[in-house]
Amino acid sequence: MDKRDKIIWLVLLAALIVLPAVGLSRYLQRVISLIFIYSMLGLSLNIVTGYMGQISLGHAAFYAIGAYTSGLLSEHFGLNFLLTCVCGIIMAGIIGWLFSIPTTKLSGTYLAIITMGFGEIVKVVIVNWESLTHGTYGLQRIAKPEFFGFQLNTTNNGLYYLCLIFLVIFVLLCIAIERSKLGRSLRAIKDDPLAASLMGVEINHYKRMAFTISTAMAGCCGALYAHLSGYVDANSFNSDVSTLILSIVIFGGMGSIKGMLLGAAVLVSFPEVLRFVAVYRFVVYGLILIVMMVFRTDGILGGPSKRPYVFPRFVKLEKGEVTKNGTAGGK
């Protein structure tokens, strides 16, 4: 991160921390918390789609697995939210890992279809496995997260801050991944898998790893969502949700962390903001997406950066070395 990025992040964080102080309505709080959750979902899919260039149309499946795991554990055993959330993460991660084993060799359209199919399967299982999931009744009255007897809810802004804390953790995690061997390998795989493997990158290993991390993160979002909304059923995780997550990644800009936040903010709030055009709002929404994709194919914040590469702080360069006189990228 260079200085400008750091300032942007800190200002944004500060603004989000003080925002509830102005007195948000329940409705606004819910919308903003949803934006946080969708930002996190965007960040999680960004690892597979943005960095590695593999399309998933079934991300909602892992979101659902996290939500149901966490919700059910809380319902049956009354476990603390943090514990159920961790279980949701692990469950989604394990299933994501299992799912990635037969699908590593696939890419493009084939992977898109398989992931879409998996999304539908999970939905059908949720509806039909009534003894576990209560079928179409869904999970009702999921307990609000509680810490040391203090319940987080919309009145004390607790849920808002809980989502914010998770979002910060996700952003930090993604920055760490981006600026590491893992991030470089994933981007290399996206650009040219053959060349990457001939540089010694274990393609299949990294594909599985990216998928596992991504689905585990989605599971975490699911757990958060279940306890935030208090009610989930199969329709909370239908293919519209998967499409929305993918749209956030593409609209925000593949591979851009800031892009995911912006993408989620725009795409989640648009249908709300556009309520005045009533039934036409989804037409307008679709139109805006199309226009955007025609004029800015890299997404809002995607594409090559025009600023120079930022060396990690612990790499100390001698004065006047390359970083100063090097030319920035871009065109």
Binding site: R184, R187, D191, A195, A196, Y309
Partner: peptide, 10 residues
């Protein structure tokens, strides 16, 4: 077959 969307150093 370079990684075109990565910088030279990367």
């Amino acid at each position: 077959r370079l990684f075109k969307n990565m910088r030279t150093i990367e």
